[in-house]
Design a protein around this nucleic acid. Sequence first.
DNA 1: AACTCGGGGGT
DNA 2: ACCCCAGAGTT
Length: 274
Amino acid sequence: MIGKLAPWYREHGRHALPWRASRDRWTVLVSEVMLHQTQVPRVAAVFDTFMARFPTPAATAAAGPAAVITAWGRLGYPRRARWLWEASLRIVQDGWPSDLSELPGVGRYTAAAVAAQVDDDDRVGIEVNIRRVCERVLGTRLAESEAEECVREIGKGLRPRDRLLAMMDLGATVCTARAPSCDRCPIVSLCATRGTHADETKRRPQARYVGSFRQRRGTVMARLRVGPVAAAELDGEVLASLLDDGLAEVTRGRAHLPRPPRRGSSPGAGVRGR
DNA sequence: AACTCGGGGGT
DNA sequence: ACCCCAGAGTT
């Protein structure tokens, strides 16, 4: 099949996204972590400001977890910020691991995506957009290994970096989840579906957010970001879970909070042993 | 395999 | 109200 994806990508790829300008490993890693379950426009809005403050692993590690978690702002899933700081510390101490999935918060997809973008590594990462494109092209649900093979087929002639970004951009801007624009699709001629089909991998339905424990955590995190607050003013159960995740360090030096419990310490009579 | 983990925007 | 989002870690 003639490669129509490459010219489409050259013309319609989202080359202006701020992180696309760099092949710096740290810059690309930060972008990928921020993009976990988070839409592109939300990341684009804060990316340059974040990178100006945390331009390198050394700067990030030196800034400490509280600064990173605070700067994360309202991006959501603040554990990502905590893990990113931990990753920066490991990189400073031990150097970059050959497999980035050794870093906290970096899984199969992110490790492959960073390697592809920075080193043109041939490993294929599968995320939601690429999976959707492949499942529609083949007209059936795919295991990860099958999706990888599909990407190699569709992306023939593209270098790994361009292959990854072209497939993602296609999924994000043309082969969208709800209403694909098949009339604008460069590979519609080899697509078995040309629309949506019932067998597509479905997102696991999230638990209702309004009224959830997650929302309570979000409320406490928002309060902690503002500034000092006494622990007694916060939801104790939520605060305990934040301490478990290393997120209450956002308040280090600014508030009176209990220290995280030591392993093996005996629980007291308080809320959940704290 | 199923759960948990934020938050915002689109429909 | 429900769906969607460049996932990862834990159980």
